[in-house]
Amino acid sequence: MNSLWAIASLVIKELYRRKDFYVLFILTVLITGLFGSISIFNDERIVRYLKAICLLLIWMAALVIAIVTTARQIPAEREQRTIFPLLAKPVTRAHVVGGKFLGCWLAAGIALVVFYVFFALLSGTREHTWPIANYAQALWLHWLMLAMVIALTLAGSVLFTAPSSNATICFIVTVGILLVGRHLNTVTLQLREPASSLVSVVYYLIPHLEFFDVRDLVIHDWPPIPWSACALATLYALAYTACFLLAAWWRFRRQPLN
């Protein structure tokens, strides 16, 4: 457990010593501020478009932070040979995979908290309402989605040699699932065999990341999701995360280090 936390804290330290997070946060604030400063028919009450833009930027920034940070973790350890002194300690490869995951997930969580606090302040100052339960659910589900994405990227990083190709593939897969994952069962109805069965298999196999995207509910002030659904989504995310981590460890445990 010590090794796990030590490796995780190293990843967090790396994130806040690099400039990625700060740049993305400042960009989010600037772009949101820019859109917020536009007068829409002199109506100060209009806020939903601003919430939508801010949340979109937060989602993009969080994905970039999570994928880019995770994709370089294990390849960098191997390329810079820091993995050797690390594994020479009482540290197993499972610890490395687990620690890297934990670090990236916690780092992404810290970044998300900062982003969502900004979002809550922004919408609170315009709307004068504070739907904390909605924001907490949105943040929690977003963080869970990132757990799956991080685990997937980590699995990719022991499969693909170059972090850039891994990051690109993971980004495309994630965005693809978010955009069309929900509709694949509709697509199957319009396809012939065997394509229909193939898409069906993909539909049931992929992690449905779109469950965790509750932006529309937050933007349009819908009531909070049932907590039971939140709990089930948590289990769903943890199961997929565990699968990806297991796959990453399975591949990494016997992999030559150089």
């Binding site: 109506d43 469950f211 995207d213 999701i225």
Partner: peptide, 20 residues
């Protein structure tokens, strides 16, 4: 559970939200 599934229209006071 995770996206709007009920057909509603904006309340008159909120109609401005479509304008941007």
């Amino acid at each position: 559970n995770f996206f709007p599934t009920a057909h509603t229209h904006l309340k008159p006071a909120d109609t401005g939200e479509i304008l941007p």
